[in-house]
Amino acid sequence: MTNAKLGESLRLLGVGEAAVRVYLALLEVAPAPLDAVGAATGLRGAELAAAYAELADAGLAGAVDEDAEVVAPVPPAAGLEILTRHRAAELEESRLAIGGAFESFRRRRLAAYDDHLVEVVTGDAVGPRMRHAWASAREQIRQFESPPYFPNPGATDDALATLARGVTQRVIYSRESLEYPGHLKDAVEPAVEAGEQARVLPSVPVKLVIIDEAYALVSLSIHEADVHNTMLVVQPCGLLSALVALFEQSWRNALPFHGPDTRPGGLPPADRRLLRLLAGGAGDDVVARELGISRRTLFRRLQILMARLGAANRFQLALQAQRSGWL
């Protein structure tokens, strides 16, 4: 190996320039007094002593026998191991420092950008923001709907006004929505009768409203919505695209609740409500409570409907009701 390549190798291991010159001289003149080594390198005094001490500390040079004045290179195995580990530690420290610096940069410089993509709305500001969302819709609203509900007395009127303007409204209701006291009669059915396209799932992952392709309103989770009364406003970005895809996949899997071509066929409103509750998975007690009837009366109405559609059980009843346009 040439002196140039050897010197570069030592430098890569963290050996200083002066110490490299001393080590190369040792390979040429040692064993020799340190002053002779210094003469070969052009170093002397404190500078020479410091360079040699660096080599000795690294395990690359040492005194010959008991003569402290005569020095020479020593077998490098242990010294090179020490230098290698020390250099690796320095490189890891540098890697962490650079990574930390970039992360700090990202938080500082990208935070302002991110703030424009996701906005947090809390407390009393939630209701007005939701009303503004309905009013701003131009083509389509997609919604996951489930309790708990924000205090917003005008929500049903906003939905009806939006439908009246010709905005398509597709809503996936959770079973809890249909079981929530009075919600089916006072909120869901008026919107469905006004043209809302509704489907039902046993549960929905989040409370979500997507306005056109412009932005989405989403709670952190169903349970957190009840505790924190907090909503996120998501502007166009990868997250909004993911929410749209989540809705469309859920829509394909949901059970139709009421389509635009439904023909009730003279079915009384109470019986339509009964079928919708059953289709949504509501239990007998919930259905009876929502209809304001006893379980005995409920069973009698079910028997009448099953006989009218030629259904032998509740599954056939739901199937025949769907085919007849009653759901």
Rank of each mutant, 00 (worst) to 15 (best):
P153D: 11
P153F: 03
T156E: 07
A159Y: 05
L160Y: 15
T162L: 05
A164M: 08
G166N: 05
Q169D: 07
R170K: 09
R170Q: 05
V171E: 03
S174Y: 07
S174K: 04
S177F: 07
P181I: 12
E189Y: 05
V192F: 00
V192I: 12
E193W: 04
E193N: 04
E193T: 02
A194P: 13
Q197E: 15
A198C: 01
A198R: 09
R199Y: 01
S203P: 00
S203Y: 00
V206S: 14
L208S: 01
L208Q: 02
V209Y: 11
I210M: 12
I210A: 13
D212T: 15
E213G: 02
E213H: 06
A214K: 15
Y215P: 07
A216D: 00
A216P: 06
L217I: 07
V218Q: 14
S219G: 13
L220C: 01
L220R: 14
L220P: 15
S221W: 01
E224F: 02
A225Q: 14
H228G: 00
V233I: 12
A242P: 07
A242I: 10
V244D: 12
V244K: 09
L246D: 14
F247H: 13
Q249A: 03
S250V: 13
W251P: 09
W251M: 09
N253H: 09
P256K: 07
P256R: 07
G259C: 06
